[in-house]
Simulated scan of single mutants.
Amino acid sequence: MMLALSGASVDGSLYTDVVDLARRSPAWFDDTVSVWSAYGLAVFAALMLAGWWRARRVDAAAAVTALAVPVAVVLAYLVNSLVKAAVHEVRPCRTLHAVTLEACPARTDWSFPSNHAAIAAAAAVALFLVSRRLGAIAVVAAAAMAASRVWVGAHYPHDVAVGLVAGALVSFAVMRVVLRSPEGLARRIAATRLRPLLVS
């Protein structure tokens, strides 16, 4: 059963205020935010790679935990996408006919919850359980990603807020399962062709 949500009734006025502010902001700032919104997820991939590279120099269990980060992110994305497909919230740029920095996505490219925010939050939470330093960087980057998606006009504020929560919860659940027995998982992986992923 499909649901229908009118995002404009939740925080449409706040969305309009943000989009209007973006239109009045300096071009260099808008360009910076737009680039981050479009390509910023690559930073999380780089942080995941760095976390794994550092972890494999510690021990196999740490490497397994680091390798679980992209798994947590993918699962968070899948769960978020299922919710998005069930809710069918039309993008605010279509509902409110706003002039936005980013081209308005197709009508069937649903808005709630934000996949960008979910991916960013999932990466941040998982990375924090691997490395406090990398996790702290990822938390700031995730907040910036969520804010940028509203700034460019792609999402309502509640889209990114729920995306952040959903991504964080799924990621935390996945990482908790892995952290129960990383040594056991390391032994299993070490017996396969994936062994080089665990040791430097």
Rank of each mutant, 00 (worst) to 15 (best):
A61Y: 05
H158S: 07
V162H: 00
V87L: 06
A45M: 14
W36I: 09
K84S: 04
L41M: 14
T95R: 04
R132K: 15
C93M: 03
N115R: 10
V33Q: 02
Y156A: 01
L197D: 03
A60K: 03
A123H: 09
D59M: 05
E183S: 14
V10L: 15
A166H: 07
L47F: 05
L47Y: 01
A142N: 10
V18Q: 01
V18T: 09
G40I: 11
D59H: 08
V71R: 07
S171W: 05
I137W: 15
E89N: 12
A68F: 02
L129M: 15
F112N: 02
A186P: 00
E102R: 12
P26C: 08
A173F: 04
I189F: 01
V43N: 13
T108V: 13
Y77L: 13
S181N: 14
M48P: 05
L134G: 06
A123G: 13
V69N: 08
L14K: 13
N80D: 06
V19Y: 01
A86E: 12
H97V: 03
S131V: 04
V199M: 04
A50E: 09
V33C: 05
P92L: 00
F29Y: 12
I189C: 00
R176W: 06
Y156C: 01
P182C: 11
S13E: 13
A124Y: 03
P182K: 09
I119M: 15
A86N: 08
V18S: 01
M2C: 02
L169H: 09
V43E: 13
A55P: 00
R180F: 01
V140P: 01
A123N: 08
A122T: 08
A85V: 08
A123W: 08
R24D: 15
S148C: 03
F29Q: 07
V130N: 04
A138P: 03
A154M: 11
A122F: 10
A62S: 10
F112A: 02
L194M: 02
H88T: 05
R180K: 07
Y77I: 03
L169D: 04
L82H: 00
G167I: 01
L169V: 15
L101S: 04
F44D: 06
H155R: 07
V87H: 04
G167D: 01
L41K: 11
L78A: 11
M2Y: 11
V35R: 13
C104I: 10
R23T: 14
R188L: 14
G40T: 11
A121C: 14
D17V: 08
A166V: 15
V162C: 00
P196D: 05
S37F: 06
A38G: 12
L78P: 00
S114V: 07
A138K: 03
A61Q: 10
E102F: 03
A61L: 10
A22N: 10
A45K: 10
P26H: 07
L194P: 00
N80P: 03
V160P: 07
A161K: 06
R180M: 02
V162N: 00
V177M: 12
L134W: 05
R57D: 09
V10A: 07
G40Q: 08
V10S: 05
V33W: 01
S111N: 14
I189K: 02
A62Q: 04
P182R: 08
V99P: 13
V19H: 02
L67Y: 00
L3A: 14
H97G: 04
